[in-house]
Design a protein around this nucleic acid. Structure first.
Lengths: 194, 194
DNA sequence: GTCTATAAATCGATAGAC
DNA sequence: GTCTATCGATTTATAGAC
């Protein structure tokens, strides 16, 4: 492959995604122009189209990659105690959300800007993640260590509660991450009647 | 005031807000054009500027009105049993959210599109609403009927959990509103250790 | 109050040089 | 791979007629 003057493909590619994610999360997909992203990357707008076919593909790639990373990072042990599995899920979800706050925000806010096909693919990935938590809750009920009225609703309620940390968490704030996880585990444990 | 041919001020004003709220919630503030709103209202784009100075003022008005309506609608009884007050809060928050899903969605998603001054005013209103719940939790701890590790975090966690219903609730779905409130009350009661 | 017409700026995306 | 330049469409907001 011939080397071209001024080429920085190795860093422009990842940087494009990083800056797009940050700007989309901060201002919203529709409010961010390709020129604005290009400026943050340090190239001219035309150069971006060597890395993405269009703006929509860029958004979908960010959301799909995030959901796949989330699913790949979660490792459950179906044979362990359901309460211990739930505790691990709480810590995992909070930790992953705080590690990727922009991606989490995007995945909730910009679904409406996806084409119907792209939306369906992201919704499917999200459904699989929710199913992971719902399995834990059903096992807990079966084991008699959890009291839950509706496993599906409790799943959605817990995820909404946990994801909410990204709305107010600030590095160096009043509580550190371990303490936050501890508090939310207390809330989740109580919510499932344990 | 002289009557003008074709004037429909009595309905255009409220309709403008209704359609703007609906479109902003569905597509996002930045993605909706004034022409699109005008078409939904049934006028030409220029006519909208008789009702709002610009697009930003329209968004702020929607958010501010919503937060003020929310605060005005919540009526607490500081002398009642804290658990009963929390139960009322759960029902109220879910009911209000399901009654105004677009406004709730907007108030979470479009804060970033407000000017700094406008943002501060909405954040202040939100803080007052959160304080209303936090008061209940602190009274519950003082009365010994709730066990809470951190009242502030528990407040934010509960509101995030309750607001989440707007993400999946559909009219005529598997569960009716009363049943949903019942399930969420069980979750909230457990979360506060009651 | 609403219309038509338009100003002025910005958008996404492409073409062609290097 | 990146640049400059630009096309064509669309945006917010305003001006002036009615």
């Amino acid at each position: 492959m011939a080397r071209t003057q001024g080429s920085r493909a190795e860093i422009t590619g990842p940087l494009l995604r990083d800056e797009a994610r940050r700007l989309f999360a901060r201002q919203g997909y529709a409010a961010v122009s390709m020129r604005q992203i290009a400026a943050a990357v340090g190239v001219q707008a035309g150069a971006l189209y060597a890395y993405t076919t269009d703006k929509q593909a860029l958004l979908f790639d960010l959301l799909e990659t995030h959901m796949q990373d989330l699913l790949a990072a979660w490792r459950d042990d179906p044979l362990a105690d359901p309460l211990a599995r739930l505790h691990r899920f709480v810590d995992f979800h909070i930790g992953f959300s705080l590690d990727h706050p922009d991606a989490v925000f995007l995945s909730y806010m910009e679904l409406r800007n996806l084409s119907p096909d792209n939306f369906a693919r992201i919704a499917d990935l999200r459904g699989r993640y929710e199913a992971a938590l719902e399995d834990i809750l059903r096992d807990g009920v079966a084991a008699g260590t959890m009291r839950i009225e509706d496993a599906k609703l409790t799943t959605l309620a817990l995820i909404a509660m946990l994801t909410g940390v990204t709305n107010w968490y600030r590095e160096g704030g009043r509580l550190d991450r371990a303490r936050i996880m501890q508090i939310y585990w207390g809330l989740a444990r109580g919510a499932v009647g344990a």
